[in-house]
Design a binder for these strands. Structure first.
Lengths: 196, 196
DNA sequence: GCGGTAACTTGAACGCGGTTCATTTGTGAG
DNA sequence: CTCACAAATGAACCGCGTTCAAGTTACCGC
């Protein structure tokens, strides 16, 4: 039987993660406060630590959801019939759109890892692997005689490039590129690849 | 006359920046502490705030130096006689080498902007402009009939791509790519561009 | 039901770290 | 030498994540 404690415990976890998700989406990771979360969830500050290791663990839970949504958005962006370069562009654009529409949550996805000292959790590496595998397929079609190791490198290189373009592009404080141009940058890079 | 106070003031600024530079290089931006800096510089904590607006201002001063060194490293990586793609690869590799050799200082260059709320200072935008102009030249050679606006986009796209590859590449917690492979990723992307 | 123990909840308190401020110390013109 | 003003000092303030002693609730064998 799921004891009453277990139920409450699970409900509290859920409330905390939802509150954190809302607050991250609204105010950004930097503005997340333990006391605010406790207030939202209707529990004492200390209760958080019965249910989660620390604040990072909550953010990690939020990141897990976000990563799933991101993966779905990318997966939904192509039907498999497009030529490889088209598909790469479609996926990249989906990545961009997701980052635009969920900037703060998307940024939390990477900001947390950059800061924390503890090892990256398995599900995180797996989620990235999942994204990579979407990219690997069209890349494989484009370069049939490339050996697997080099294909893997190319896959990561393309992901990193798109990620860099989107990251700096959305940080208009630094780059100052209007959003609609970001898509063109992606296209420029991706079409270059096709013409080896 | 430069009053005794003015001298001391300038010396303190210098000592603080040097201490911050050493500490960032050794322990990373996250471990920087006002009290440690005061200890290094042989002054009281409060004295820092007579001489700098806040801690960020010191980091900014460090970043200014780092950016200069980065620009020099990129500038020294080519002699102008190489074909455009070669030159792009040489500059990108120089960027990578600099980031490898000065990881924590290089990361501070971008981490600070991502966090702070106050506007990016002018010299920072200018330094980036400087880097961009190095890239713009070979790009212009590669695509003589491209209009200026698109050339600018391509320039930023290439910088962002390399930046993304280096960033994720050096964060081996996330990507797990051995350093010597990062250079190959850059080459893959850059040579793709050349064959439009 | 009943009592006892284990688990949960609570919020005040701790520790850390950036920043401030009343007080002390130093500077330089008259 | 003196006085007014500037600079230096470090204790104190405040915000915030985390902990903990004390109080409360849930669970189980009787």
């Amino acid at each position: 039987m799921a004891s009453k404690s277990q139920i409450r415990r699970e409900q509290l976890r859920e409330k905390l993660v939802e509150a954190a998700e809302r607050r991250i989406a609204r105010d950004g990771l930097n503005e997340l406060r333990a006391r605010d979360l406790a207030g939202d969830a209707g529990c004492a500050v200390g209760a958080i630590y019965n249910v989660f290791e620390d604040l990072n663990a909550i953010v990690m839970a939020v990141n897990g959801r976000t990563f799933l949504q991101l993966e779905q958005a990318v997966a939904a962006s192509f039907d498999g019939t497009e030529p490889p370069v088209q598909r790469l562009i479609a996926m990249s654009t989906a990545y961009l759109r997701f980052a635009e529409a969920n900037t703060r949550r998307w940024r939390a996805l990477f900001d947390l890892q950059m800061r924390a000292d503890d090892p990256v959790p398995d599900w995180y590496r797996d989620a990235l692997k999942g994204l990579f595998s979407y990219i690997a397929e069209p890349v494989g079609q484009l370069f049939p005689e490339m050996d697997p190791e080099e294909l893997d490198l190319m896959t990561r290189a393309l992901f990193s490039s798109v990620h860099g373009i989107v990251t700096l592009g959305l940080e208009n404080r630094i780059s100052g590129v209007p959003p609609e141009q970001i898509e063109r940058m992606i296209t420029q890079i991706m079409s270059g690849i096709g013409n080896k």
